[in-house]
Amino acid sequence: MNFNFLSPVSDMVLAHNELLPQQALGRKIRIHSKQNGIPDLDGVQLAILGVIENRNDENYIGEDFNLNEIRKSFYALFPGSWTTTIADLGDINKGETVEDTYFALKSAISVLVQKKVIPIILGGSQDLTYANYRAYDDLIPMVNIVNVDSKFDIGDSAKPIKNNSFVGKIILDQPFNLFNYSTLGYQTYFNSQEEIDLMDRLYFDAYRLGDVSKDITIVEPILRDANIVSIDLGSIKASEVSAKQRVSPNGLDGKEICAISRYAGISNKVSSLGIWEYKPSTDDEVTAMLISQIIWYFIEGVNYRVKDDDFKDADSYQKFITLVEDQELIFYKSIRTGRWWIEIPFLSEVNNKLKKHTLLPCTHQDYEDACNNNVPERWYKAFQKNCV
């Protein structure tokens, strides 16, 4: 498939790039330019992809935006001790309709994921996560989405899709490929009690801002189990971003959002990352730099991925069996990384979503809870979803 719907990185950004030191990221990545066309993807592990689409923003009043400031900030950073090759494929511009943009984004992500290239999508409104999800329709049977957001964005699926209601469409539109949806950093006062109750009834994971800020490590198993990570910049507190980006005095700080991004990168399952709701303003340097650092930490994480979830080699893991309320719980611990998993049993008599025993990432604390006769909450939710 060709990517002829992609527009190149602007000449202004490329001119700025020429002034950077040779060691800077912008001098080391393959860039889609007018002069050289779309870069060859052979050997590329990560690709930046802009989407200039915000018409389904609930507050859209016709304003345009571009991603030039983010690119300038990102190109000026220095890489870590990385072995990955990165490309910048330029932008998908607004289609004739929003559905056209969705189709272009879905097609691009599908091709990249099949080529084992991880797209890092920078965009306008977060409803584009729906197109990101649909890109997996023919790739894997069940999809896990993690949304870093102050809101659940479930909304009313009977109404047209918006950036505050796209999750309802993901849940209810066929084909039904969603297995788990998790929200990290939600703030209760931004969500109706009905939506909070619905998250509970659907056995989805939801972590409040206070819990995430108190112990950032609790999000690691959630991100280890994700295929798609969607970051809403509105989840970041106002003091960390530029004027137009400010949503709430409370939210994740710069260190927390970068830690979450790094956990997403380290996850062997995450195969696409979206950073949404970018709203440029005249004092844009802080937001552009924060987004650049979010991308940097994600790439850093990808460079430190360790294949520790293949449990065929008995020497690579330890196995622990506990009994909780007559239920046998089986835990695995990787000897290489110290990360933990718990087995979700396969129920042959139930028309379940999982077709085999599945391992759910968990924490050492979950194992300790099981030893103290407490069923880990995430195991219970996954088990219930499997029975539905």
Rank of each mutant, 00 (worst) to 15 (best):
P8I: 04
L14N: 11
Q23F: 06
L25S: 14
L41G: 09
L41Y: 13
G43R: 02
I48Q: 01
E53L: 10
N54G: 05
D57W: 03
D57M: 03
F65M: 07
L67H: 09
N68S: 15
E69C: 03
L77N: 12
L77G: 01
P79T: 11
T83N: 11
T84W: 01
I86H: 06
I86K: 06
I92K: 07
T101F: 04
A104F: 15
V111T: 15
I118N: 09
P119D: 12
P119F: 07
P119H: 07
Y130M: 03
Y130G: 02
N132P: 01
R134L: 08
A135V: 07
D137M: 06
D137C: 06
L139K: 01
L139T: 05
I145E: 03
V148M: 01
S157G: 06
P160W: 04
N163R: 06
S165N: 08
F166G: 07
F166V: 11
K169A: 02
Q174T: 14
Y181W: 07
Q187K: 14
S192Y: 11
S192I: 05
I196H: 02
I196W: 08
F204N: 08
Y207I: 12
Y207C: 04
D211Y: 04
I216P: 00
P221M: 10
L223C: 06
L223V: 09
I228M: 05
V229L: 08
D232V: 05
A238I: 06
A238G: 12
V247W: 09
S248M: 07
P249E: 08
K255W: 00
K255I: 04
C258A: 00
Y263E: 11
A264Q: 01
G265Q: 01
G265L: 02
G265C: 03
S267Y: 14
V270Y: 02
S272T: 15
W276K: 09
T287Y: 04
I294P: 00
F298P: 03
R305M: 02
D308F: 08
D310W: 06
F311C: 00
A314Q: 05
A314L: 01
K319L: 14
L323H: 13
L329Y: 10
I342W: 05
E349K: 10
V350W: 02
L354C: 01
H357A: 04
T358M: 02
L360T: 13
L360G: 11
D366N: 12
A370S: 15
A370R: 15
N374K: 11
E377P: 05
K381G: 09
Q384I: 15
N386S: 14
